[in-house]
Nucleic acid binder design. Sequence first.
DNA 1: ATGGCCGTGGAGGTCAAGATCGGCGTGCAG
DNA 2: CTGCACGCCGATCTTGACCTCCACGGCCAT
Lengths: 234, 234
Amino acid sequence: MAGAVNTVHGTTHLGGGVTAIEQTEARPRGTRLPRRARRHQLLGAAQEVFVAQGYHAAAMDDIAERAGVSKPVLYQHFPGKLDLYLALLDQHCEALLQAVRTALASTTDNKLRVTATMDAYFAYVEAEGGAFRLVFESDLTNEPAVRERVDRVSLQCAEAISEVIAEDTGLPSEQSMLLAVALGGVSQVVARYWLSSESDIPRDTAVQLVTSLAWRGIAGFPLHGADGQGPEAD
Amino acid sequence: MAGAVNTVHGTTHLGGGVTAIEQTEARPRGTRLPRRARRHQLLGAAQEVFVAQGYHAAAMDDIAERAGVSKPVLYQHFPGKLDLYLALLDQHCEALLQAVRTALASTTDNKLRVTATMDAYFAYVEAEGGAFRLVFESDLTNEPAVRERVDRVSLQCAEAISEVIAEDTGLPSEQSMLLAVALGGVSQVVARYWLSSESDIPRDTAVQLVTSLAWRGIAGFPLHGADGQGPEAD
DNA sequence: ATGGCCGTGGAGGTCAAGATCGGCGTGCAG
DNA sequence: CTGCACGCCGATCTTGACCTCCACGGCCAT
């Protein structure tokens, strides 16, 4: 049976202090919880498993076992595997969008805006549980519901960035959207690379480095109404 | 709705009148091909199905039907589904790496290098069959073999770019790698966005736009030994 | 021309994983 | 004290997809 897709892949760093046998915390089966708390705990367990193994390799048995319950309980809280995944996906898409919008609104200095946005991506990627994998590295993009969510959050982030660009450069919307997609793309890709090659560069240094790259790039466009320090094009 | 083609025993092979050149439709079953041609055709059919449906949703039956053969012949050419996928993946990873290296070596003017590299990504993404999805949007990243290949090609592309950056800026390797990952990331993300939102901007315009963004960004770093037009850092 | 050979084809086995049904234990109203 | 309700669990079913077994028909040496 070569078809076994076992993937005991690196799993990055989780809780850290893991005792020998159990993975993180296997609770004694039999604790009764109110429904809301149980649901919350199930979401947490599902996130851990989905992040560590991906959607397809994650079995409902694994999630149930991780949560310390049995499968029927899982199905009493969520109609199916996809719904569980979508609940988590929505949650973290919303978190990313909020982080980006907050960063953009945190100042009116465009260079600081770039810094803040870049740092938002880094913070998002570094956030506990590695939940960014659900958004940026999903293995269920063929499912229309997932595709729609991922595309939508990317588009909304780009639109938020694009508004600032269009306002400060006067570029037409298609071009500012292209630049916005570029900026968001750099942030996401570099943040993920920085996380994967851990312990190389401190986060602030990486943010500053790529921020200077992006800022020099974006500040050179016409009509940029910042503090007037932008170098003109050739 | 696959039941269309059933027993066609009566059809003598190469009847002459059969036009049999249908790229996207199932061909009449019963044509005998030499092994090398058959393998090539199987790879083409598999690529179409994998690109259109993703790895998991693609069934071996679909690939066989698309190629106009039955499943056993598929398994006589490839040991399993994963091997088939890896063959395609290796092929297109190699193509991307070659394209990037060729673009980097096409000139010594760094601005033209950026343009050429950017255009290489756009051309790669636009290439027929949408094979870039196997590399950039794979839904099998949890499989270690796939993960290894995807990571490796990204790293090799970044290293190729990083060499140029390090040589022309004098930055330490970690920082030049970070910038190289950034440039490769922009190229990839923007090219995919440009492809998905088709008919908005012509390819040359998009390439020029994001090239100017990237060039302004990268040209500002110290010791950049290009034509000496780089604006000084603040 | 004819019999052997080999590649093709349909039909089937196996197994993993999502989804579900009867028992059990606990806490409380009466 | 006892019956009821509720949430939980072990065990099971089914679907679907990857992967092979028995029959058929064209090609080549004699």
